[in-house]
């Protein structure tokens, strides 16, 4: 995506720009400063990368058999479908008692999953941090693997698995969301630990403190702010997922979404999707407000 000075007449002289550049901007300067041979090779390589990428896209579209003809006018068609089938949203449906109950259920699932997930993620993150892990040989690789495994499976796949083992209901939803939370928070927690200043750790070790004491006195105070922010953010992300786990048989709002879809009650579906978007936006605003407040309060 770099400039191609020689082929474009309207372009400013590259060298002139380069002389005005500061150290950090080698992205531009590199080409002009390099000897001519390297320059030509680089341009060639760049064109090659571009050609490769375009080829990849064309090949993918062909291989996946993507119906590109459906793209033109997509916005118009979306609008039309929305107007004819989904409009007006059946607001009455989402103000009914059972549906409002499901919103509360969603909150409950997200809360429990986040609390349990974070309680599990804290020791895992400690064991999985390269600098603080109390057992480099055994706990470190095991806990890293656990966090990786939780992360690499999509939360909806966790849900599907949990439902197939525990049956329908909120319990499999909580299980799936907990695993998701462990993977999500665990990685961020561990990264926060890896970023701490080692000085206080040395100081605590030097007093004869044991690993747990060292963790509580030298690590926790340093990661508290970051962890608090991460936890709130995690809740927000978990809540977003909780709104849809019901679609695969766990509890909450998603269950109603699926149920309405199966009855092809499009106006109900529209109302439910709308309500999901709204509660998620509220949760996101609440979480960023809370994060800002807490960051200011603690720091």
């Amino acid at each position: 995506m770099h400039a191609k000075p020689s082929s474009d007449a309207a372009v400013i002289d590259d060298v002139e720009v380069t002389t005005l550049l500061e150290d950090g901007e080698r992205a531009v300067a590199g080409d002009a400063l390099a000897p001519p041979r390297t320059l030509r090779w680089r341009k060639w390589k760049r064109d090659l990368v571009w050609a490769g990428l375009i080829g990849l896209v064309v090949w993918s579209i062909d291989r996946l058999d993507i119906p590109l003809d459906r793209l033109p006018g997509i916005l118009g068609r979306m609008g039309e479908t929305l107007m004819t089938r989904y409009f007006p949203p059946d607001i009455a449906r989402i103000t009914q008692r059972d549906y409002l109950g499901s919103v509360f259920e969603t909150l409950e699932m997200a809360y429990l999953a986040t609390v349990v997930g974070i309680v599990l993620a804290i020791p895992l993150a400690w064991f999985a941090s390269a600098n603080m892990s109390p057992s480099k040989r055994i706990l470190y690789p095991l806990s890293r693997l656990a966090i990786m495994a939780c992360r690499s499976v999509h939360e909806m796949i966790w849900t599907i698995l949990a439902v197939s083992i525990l049956g329908f209901g909120m319990l499999p939803g909580v299980l799936a969301l907990t695993l998701f939370c462990v993977g999500f928070a665990g990685k961020l927690f561990a990264e926060a630990i890896e970023a701490i200043d080692q000085g206080p750790v040395d100081a605590m070790r030097a007093t004869g403190a044991n690993p747990l004491q060292t963790f509580v006195y030298a690590v926790l105070p340093q990661v508290r702010v970051a962890w608090t922010g991460t936890s709130i953010y995690t809740w927000d992300v978990v809540f977003r997922a909780a709104t849809v786990v019901g679609f695969f048989g766990a509890g909450g709002m998603g269950w109603y979404l699926r149920e309405s879809m199966q009855r092809i009650a499009s106006q109900e579906v529209a109302a439910i999707i709308l309500s999901i978007i709204i509660v998620v936006l509220i949760a996101e605003l609440f979480s960023s407000w809370l994060r800002g407040r807490i960051a200011r309060a603690i720091a």
């Binding site: 000085g199 206080p200 040395d202 100081a203 070790r205 007093t207 004869g208 006195y217 030298a218 105070p221």
Partner: peptide, 21 residues
């Protein structure tokens, strides 16, 4: 070693205090 360390005080160049306590 932890028991031995209890008998050895250490003072650091960068103080190494726990800033938030």
């Amino acid at each position: 070693l932890r028991l031995a360390r209890r008998n050895i005080g250490m003072i650091f160049q960068e103080f190494n205090l726990i800033e938030r306590l």
